[in-house]
Computed example of a mutant assay.
Amino acid sequence: MNRLAIFDCDGTLVDSGATIHRALEAAFKVHGLECPAPSVSRKVIGLSLNEAMSTLAPEYNPEALSKTYKEAFFTMRAGEQVEEPLFDGILPLLDALAAEGWQLAVATGKSDRGLKHCLESHGIHARFVSLQTADRHPSKPNPGMALAAIAEAGSSPEWSVVIGDTSFDMGMALAAGACAIGAAWGYHDLDELRDAGAHGVAERPSEVLGIARQWVEKAA
Rank of each mutant, 00 (worst) to 15 (best):
K140F: 02
K140A: 05
P141R: 05
P141Q: 08
N142H: 15
P143M: 00
P143L: 00
P143Y: 05
P143Q: 00
P143A: 00
P143N: 00
P143G: 00
G144W: 07
G144K: 07
M145I: 12
M145G: 01
M145W: 09
M145L: 13
M145T: 03
L147E: 10
L147C: 09
A148S: 01
A148R: 00
A148K: 00
A148T: 03
A149Q: 02
I150H: 09
I150A: 14
I150W: 03
I150C: 14
I150N: 04
I150F: 08
A151D: 06
A151Y: 01
A151V: 00
A151S: 11
E152P: 02
E152I: 03
G154K: 00
S156C: 11
P157H: 11
E158K: 13
W159D: 09
W159K: 04
W159S: 08
S160K: 12
S160A: 15
V161Y: 07
V161D: 11
V161I: 15
V161G: 11
V162E: 03
I163N: 01
I163T: 04
I163V: 15
G164T: 08
T166Y: 04
T166K: 08
S167C: 13
S167D: 15
S167F: 10
F168R: 04
D169T: 06
D169Y: 01
M170T: 14
G171A: 15
G171V: 13
G171R: 04
M172H: 07
M172E: 11
M172I: 14
M172V: 10
A173I: 04
A173D: 02
A173S: 07
